[in-house]
């Protein structure tokens, strides 16, 4: 590991210094530093900034970015009013990691693409832009099946992010120029006009994620995670569905987000209006509503199965929501 300078931030201004890399839960950054995938020269500990409060915000909830995953999932109001988030967190990582990892850091964790994480340096656009993509000619099982901007096809590993996308969560960002808010989908899937595939989000250096805002209660939902083993494993694909039912039990409005299939949580754009009026128990109708968006899939050599798997996960989640 490269030697670094460590300091605890006392004020937000301390954390806005772009020469310093923020650290909080440490679970991802410290690992990346051990493997010399990340080599920050200066690391600022932001845990003392009081950014872990979770408080009602009108009909919604404002979750401080430094609340741990365990703290969020352990709240009775989250379990009752935003159960899809509690389920997604319960399906994430392990108890120990959920006690350490923060919700803000969870969004900003790097991809689990094995070539990016390799202990020896392999061609990887995300790790070293322009160096190529080992997955393109190698094992592309974990990669996106829906087109992404830029040369990197790696997926985002977070479960909570998929639930948050379906909940229309808003990311609050603070920086030296002030505050701004973005929908989660816009935050995590940055356009790549500058050719910066190593970027995870639109966050600029010197900016911090300070909170996530859930706009309103969404009690009817489900999170379906498909993985290679039952626990302590990242998703192969996952689906979050948040549904409002009409008086006869049909889908009134639905929001769907899929994990493991794109650069970030993927919201099928045409399916959501098409799902309105569907019987949630009618798998064929749900499939018909989802199919036009799924037709955009462009899988690689080893991940075509994820298209059908994601379809079934989405149908399953909508039926259970």
């Amino acid at each position: 590991m490269r030697v670094f300078e460590y300091r605890r931030a006392c004020t937000l201004q301390d954390a806005f210094d772009p020469a310093w890399t923020p650290i909080a839960g440490a679970t991802d950054l410290y690992n990346l530093m051990k493997d010399r995938i990340a080599e920050p020269g200066r690391v600022v500990d932001i845990r003392g900034l009081g950014l872990s409060a979770i408080e009602p915000d009108g009909d919604g909830l404002r979750i401080g970015a430094l609340a741990t995953l365990a703290q969020v999932a352990g709240r009775p109001d989250v379990a009752k009013r935003w159960p899809v988030l509690a389920e997604a967190i319960a399906a994430s990582a392990s108890p120990q990691l959920r006690n350490m990892a923060t919700v803000g850091g969870n969004l900003l964790q790097q991809t689990r693409c094995p070539y990016y994480r390799a202990e020896t340096l392999l061609p990887c656009h995300r790790r070293r832009p322009g160096s190529g993509c080992s997955a393109a000619s190698g094992d592309d099982r974990s990669l996106a099946v829906f087109p992404t901007e830029g040369p990197c096809l790696a997926t985002h590993p977070s479960d909570p992010a998929v639930a948050l996308a379906a909940l229309d969560a808003v990311v609050e960002i603070a920086g030296p120029a002030g505050r701004r808010s973005l929908a989660l989908a816009d935050f995590l899937r940055p356009p790549d006009p500058l050719g910066e595939p190593q970027r995870l989000s639109v966050l600029e250096r010197g900016e911090l994620v300070v909170a996530l805002v859930l706009p309103h209660a969404s009690p009817h939902s489900a999170y379906v995670k498909v993985r290679d083993r039952w626990s302590y494993e990242f998703a192969v694909v996952s689906a979050a569905a948040v549904v409002e039912h009409d008086a006869d039990g049909r889908i009134g409005a639905a929001r769907v987000a899929l994990g493991g299939v794109a650069a970030g949580p993927w919201r099928p754009p045409r399916a959501e209006p098409a799902l309105a009026g569907s019987d949630p128990g009618d798998a064929a109708a749900l499939r018909a509503a989802l199919e036009p968006d799924f037709a955009a899939a462009r899988p690689g050599r080893h991940n075509a199965f994820k298209v059908e798997l994601a379809m079934r996960a989405a149908i399953d989640a909508l039926g259970r929501a």
């Binding site: 460590y6 650290i23 410290y30 690992n31 051990k34 365990a70 350490m100």
Partner: peptide
């Protein structure tokens, strides 16, 4: 593993189990 994958390094921090391999000692 020293990478947060096995749990052998579990200790309690303020009463909660955490992975001591994934926490810089200064923190």
């Amino acid at each position: 593993c020293d990478r947060g994958e096995c749990g052998a390094c579990t200790v309690h921090l303020d009463g909660r189990p955490v992975l001591s391999c994934l926490m810089p000692a200064v923190m």
